[in-house]
């Protein structure tokens, strides 16, 4: 059993460490700092932490103003509020001028669990991917979230960093992280699964199961949804027989859509399946129960791969 750490936890730690090295970092939160883990930074650097109360739109505006003044603001809240609630602010105050604002949102996807549909962001990747100038990063595990936080700081321009609530297994061995560069986690020639976030773990498990049936599955960690590593997508399509995407997000507008667009424009026809939340809202339940019910678990991925082959 490997170490388990939540991506939000790793973000909070990395942010506090970065704060020590870089005086230009400021952090904003909307009354959720204990959950988004920005409270670690807040304790260390109280003068550079601004709690906005439950006011996400204003938080994004403050972040834009701070960025326009040379600071590097990280603005955190739950994914559903940081993106959907403040979408017009992300669009007009941040994306349009291309300001160097980092929106680092936790509690993305169904794995929020018992809080239910109102708190389970399944559209945040689509929303942020849609915005010109935005980069969208979805780390697969805790250590990668720490690396991603550093990369996001170093990147110039608006970024959406998607983080989760539950502790997740640390599965990525690679200690390098380059925005826009997918990671090949497992070679394979029969099927390829392109996954992001928590679904990378499910995809790896599915690949293990399928290996027992002599089905060779490539797993790609597409930790950056935008800009998408089109080369990795096309290579997977060329070198395997069927292609699947897996994301803890609606199958509309997210990773699956981005991959489908890339394939279609390259003129590649290949049996293809998007695994994700199929045009519905989530509900209350434990993360594993929800993953099972909504078909995000390794078991369903196995079924889908076999169905395509």
């Amino acid at each position: 059993m490997t170490e388990k750490i939540a991506t939000r936890e790793a973000y909070g730690q990395a942010l506090a460490e970065l704060g020590k090295q870089h005086a230009d970092i400021v952090v904003l939160d909307a009354d959720l700092s204990c959950s988004t883990k920005t409270n670690t930074f807040a304790k260390k650097f109280p003068d550079r932490f601004f709690n906005m109360g439950v006011a996400e739109q204003n938080m994004i505006g403050w972040a834009a103003g701070l960025a326009a003044s040379g600071h590097v603001p990280f603005a955190s809240s739950f994914a559903v509020f940081a993106t959907a609630r403040a979408f017009d602010q992300l669009r007009n105050s941040v994306a349009l001028p291309g300001l160097n604002v980092k929106v680092a949102a936790s509690h993305a996807g169904l794995s929020v669990g018992p809080d239910g549909a109102s708190h389970q962001a399944i559209e945040d990747i689509a929303l942020t991917r849609l915005l010109p100038n935005f980069t969208v990063v979805v780390p697969a595990d805790g250590p990668q979230a720490g690396l991603a936080t550093r990369a996001v700081y170093a990147h110039q321009g608006p970024v959406y960093l998607r983080l989760g609530r539950p502790k997740v297994e640390s599965i990525i061995k690679d200690t390098s992280f380059t925005i826009g560069q997918a990671q090949l986690l497992r070679p394979g020639s029969d099927a390829a699964i392109i996954a992001c976030g928590t679904m990378v773990h499910e995809a790896c498990q599915a690949a293990e199961f399928l290996a027992r049936d002599n089905i060779s599955v490539r797993v790609v960690n597409m930790h950056t949804i935008k800009p998408l590593d089109a080369e990795a997508v096309l290579a997977a399509a060329r070198e395997t027989r069927v292609l699947l995407t897996a994301e803890e997000h609606s199958i509309i507008g997210g990773l699956g859509s981005a991959v489908a667009e890339t394939l279609a424009e390259a003129g590649i026809g290949i049996p293809f399946k998007r695994i994700g939340v199929n045009d519905s809202f989530g509900e209350s339940g434990e993360p594993d129960e929800l993953f099972h019910k909504f078909g995000l678990d390794a078991e369903n991925i196995v079924r889908q791969v076999k169905g395509l082959l």
Binding site: F50, Q57, N58, I60, G61, W62, A63, A64, G65, L66, A67, A68, S69, P73, Q89, S93
Partner: peptide
């Protein structure tokens, strides 16, 4: 909101 960020 942006003005607040700049003032801070």
């Amino acid at each position: 909101s942006m003005a607040c960020g700049m003032a801070m």
